[in-house]
């Protein structure tokens, strides 16, 4: 019974990791840009939800479109102001640029809102849970997981089926060719960053109420997202999804049976091992 509970925790937690990773892999796969500020965009969406809740009493679900919209916009702004300048620069430049951006966003958040830990107190889901035999399923966690899975599906469908999605696919394979096909690759880049923002915007909103809101809130999620993207293969949406679940399970099972202090160390260990034997990730790219 305990085992099932632990596995369930791993899957629920991992699903949200997946969504965050999907946002990162889109950008990484398309532009070869490692966005260190990815987790911090999620933090911004959490603050958005928090302030809408505190000042206007909006339930997080009501805030979802707003916070996702704000992070989408943030993604576009980041693209136009920072990323655009380093897209064709040597790899290190992009790393430094987004790293600096991450520091800036965190410090700015701390300056505006203090480093205090906030929580979204009461949402329609808070405190509720489902009991099946001995297994506890917290409703906020369940909805967060389901929401994340749904969002991943929507993104995958968007990329595969829509005209813009095909334009993104083409640009990912060759920017020059895509341009020759009449694809405005500049717009494609901006749209992809917006999508990346929507991913973390939704993830952040789903997490509010379960996770504290503070300037460093995106740190661990961002870090795990890198591991998950590398595991799943750069640019591979379903790869990121499965890898996210895998990391969630590693964290849960490893934490429970080996020691909670090793939770993340194990996730990183798995990452290192996989890279040794399959450098392109579990699912290639």
């Amino acid at each position: 019974m305990m085992f099932l509970q632990v596995v369930l925790t791993g899957v629920l937690v991992g699903s949200v990791y997946s969504l965050v990773a999907v946002g990162l892999t889109l950008v990484w796969g398309l532009m070869d840009i490692i966005n260190f500020a990815h987790g911090d965009m999620m933090m911004i969406s959490m603050y958005t939800v928090f302030w809408l809740y505190t000042l206007l009493k909006f339930d997080p679900f009501v805030s979802l479109p707003i916070s996702a919209g704000i992070t989408a916009l943030l993604g576009i702004v980041i693209y136009k102001l920072v990323i655009k300048r380093v897209v064709n620069a040597p790899g290190l430049m992009a790393l430094l640029a987004t790293f600096g951006l991450s520091l800036f966003i965190r410090n700015f958040a701390q300056f505006l809102w203090t480093p205090n830990y906030r929580f979204v107190g009461e949402s329609i889901l808070s405190g509720k849970r489902i009991l099946i035999a001995d297994i506890v399923i917290g409703l906020p966690q369940l909805i967060a997981a389901l929401g994340s899975i749904l969002m991943t599906l929507l993104i995958a469908l968007f990329i595969k089926r829509t005209k813009t999605g095909k334009a993104i696919q083409a640009t990912a394979q060759s920017r020059d060719i895509a341009e020759l096909m009449g694809v405005n690759t500049e717009k494609v880049y901006a749209v992809t960053f917006a999508l990346s923002g929507i991913c973390v915007g939704v993830a952040g909103t789903l997490l509010s109420g379960i996770f504290p809101v503070y300037p460093e809130a995106g740190a661990m999620y961002g870090l795990l997202a890198f591991v998950i993207v590398a595991l799943g293969g750069f640019g591979n949406i379903w790869g990121a999804f499965y890898a996210g679940i895998l990391i969630g399970l590693t964290e849960a099972l490893g934490g429970f049976y080996l020691g909670t202090q090793f939770k993340y160390a194990l996730a990183f260990l798995i990452y290192l091992l996989v890279l040794q034997f399959r450098p392109k990730g579990l699912f290639g790219w």
């Binding site: 005209k163 095909k166 334009a167 083409a170 096909m181 009449g182 694809v183």
Partner: peptide
């Protein structure tokens, strides 16, 4: 080819 066809 479809990628190009979408243009017009």
């Amino acid at each position: 080819v479809l990628t190009g066809a979408f243009l017009h």
